[in-house]
Design a protein around this nucleic acid. Sequence first.
DNA 1: ATGATTTAATCCGCATAAGGGAAAAAATTG
DNA 2: CAATTTTTTCCCTTATGCGGATTAAATCAT
Lengths: 399, 399
Amino acid sequence: MKTADPELMRAINRLNVLDTIRRHGPISRVEISERTQLSTTTVSAITASLLDDGLILPRHEGDIRNEAARGRPRVMLELNPDAARVVGAKIAANRLVFVVTDFRGDVLSNLTLPIRIDRQPIGVIADLVEDGVRRCVVDAGLSLEDVDTVCLGLPGVIEHRTGHIRSSPIFRDTNVDFASEMTSRLNTPTIVESDAHAITLAHHWFGKARDLEDMVVISLEQTLGLGVLHDNQLFRGAGGLSHNLGDLVLGMGPRGIVRLSSQAGESEILGEQPVGGRFAEAIRLGRGMTHAQALIRAEDSGLINAAIRAGEAVGVAIANIVTLFAPPRVIIVGSSLALGEPFLDSLRNAFALAIPPSLKGVAELVFDDSTDNFWAQGAAAVALYELYESPWNTTGPAL
Amino acid sequence: MKTADPELMRAINRLNVLDTIRRHGPISRVEISERTQLSTTTVSAITASLLDDGLILPRHEGDIRNEAARGRPRVMLELNPDAARVVGAKIAANRLVFVVTDFRGDVLSNLTLPIRIDRQPIGVIADLVEDGVRRCVVDAGLSLEDVDTVCLGLPGVIEHRTGHIRSSPIFRDTNVDFASEMTSRLNTPTIVESDAHAITLAHHWFGKARDLEDMVVISLEQTLGLGVLHDNQLFRGAGGLSHNLGDLVLGMGPRGIVRLSSQAGESEILGEQPVGGRFAEAIRLGRGMTHAQALIRAEDSGLINAAIRAGEAVGVAIANIVTLFAPPRVIIVGSSLALGEPFLDSLRNAFALAIPPSLKGVAELVFDDSTDNFWAQGAAAVALYELYESPWNTTGPAL
DNA sequence: ATGATTTAATCCGCATAAGGGAAAAAATTG
DNA sequence: CAATTTTTTCCCTTATGCGGATTAAATCAT
């Protein structure tokens, strides 16, 4: 356990204040004091230090609180966007998406590379990622030296703490030390995180879970991922492992173990389509879901059935997750949502059927079809989160 | 978030030292200093305060460290057993088990009441529990005034934070505020906890997970429960809810949803036996598993098949839990272990089959057939854990 | 036996933190 | 200019932890 000393104390309160400023936009000192329960004296001291470090900025204009504006107007404080720059990336089998954000998480530039990197050698993937990061940084009018941290979000089982990729559908090898590889290539601290964790933090910071301290995100992409927010923190398994929902076993069929991924994985849903023709080509190019959408609108019965089966499987899996974590909200994201009503309806029905009676009504299902940029922004948020904590170390004695 | 002030700092370090003393038996101040990374000065100050509060005791005898005994001998410190008394209880459908322990968690007296309380009105159950607590306390040569806290461990979905029982197989009603009820009856602070959480803490403190900070306990009794230790802490779902493993869905059979409880619940395994005769009577009296053991030894094919099916279902469920939490050790406890090799073998096989390849070897399965007393001791440990934290408030300025 | 050596525990002073209270400074309205 | 409200600034108290010096308690060597 880490030992508690005055420095830790200060770090905690500092983080607390900084996070309050991040969450509640431009905010005055008095209000910070109310929200954090810290005395105005302390808040004043901490904010002075944050201002001094250039992490926040004062804003004299925005003092328009309820007309009754007597007395000295409050000085609003907000994050200094220029305090840091980070790069967030979503690495998927058939596309690379990058964003550069400022300290607030606002996107400065973004770049999407619709290329299939799936099954390429590691060196090639690393090349492409490196290139994408560099391009996106230039697009933002910056140089790599201006970037503090890079965070790569990708599917699979990721060991965040060590930066190792235990297994991922986009790598042939297992246990790749991708964080070190990219850190040395970019000459910038680079961390690796599960894409599901990235989108989870994205929803906590910018999306549909800003008001919650507990929730769950189910990501339905090529890989089926899970992110759990517990007490405002990402819950990482023992050893910092990310979860892989697709590995969950749904039952023992006549042909042995049936895993969720075999019922609801993107390729499994699409793979049931007759081979050949434009559809196979589309799948190969990673446009499968777009075409699937069209086919479903055209009432293609084969695909609709596959979507219904997948929805059922996912619905049951979500019920199991809710049984274990009892979150007030479950946010479902990912490309498979494009399958539309047949999929969503069967998911909802299966969930309603599978949720234990005693937990009925505990969790609310929310569907979210955010863009790839949002995922990348989540990865950027992961990077920012680490930066937020780093002042813990650098904080010297107050001047 | 709670605000960090010197008091919190002290509380953290105090708890840290106290916990170190609890875990590492009689221990000297220097060693505490090494283990906690606190300076010897600080350790000295904190231990002085703990001694002053009577929570720990010095032991001058036990200074026999490696022969090379030069210099001033170390004074060993240990928990003061008399610092507190707690009662822990395991409440099951067909038996009530109580223990009284001292501050160290050592059992002073225990009492088992083999009575069926299942489906009795709440008032009757409360009566019986109250009676058991009082008896056990008297057996320990104490009076209820000497008892600091009572902790009741029972199956079902328990909301530890509020003391409500959301649902339990031993209550007809749902959402019972049992903690308040018993607190006013006993006139002693009483808390309620899932029995699975109790046995989890028991293993962490006294049992087969003393060396781990992450692990999982699967409890197979009438109800199938789960306890997760994460970072040395009990992981409670959002809102402090306990998990109910039996509600997990294993698949969608032809007859609808198939839950784990319907495959591996105690009554479901035994229930497949032909009705009538001595066996039914045994089940009614809660001796089902004992008889089942005999039948299995006699190679009763019906029961063996039921055991195998149950083992498979549990094995798959455990694999799913490991997929989510990636614990280094899974401890499996509960009366169903009495089913013996047919059950255990099929469990192990199903687990091996269902565990995803990337997690193979991550988790070790350990079977533990500890007595009911151990469960009750775990409940006592839950009570003690709360006491450990309470000095946070009562701790005044160091004198 | 007696002093030297070694290790443990404590004491003292210093650094930091937070908090409260009060007063001063700042900015705005009436 | 007076009134009002926010923010900063002192000053003082309480609390922690740490480092270095000091005391304490035992063994070893002569």
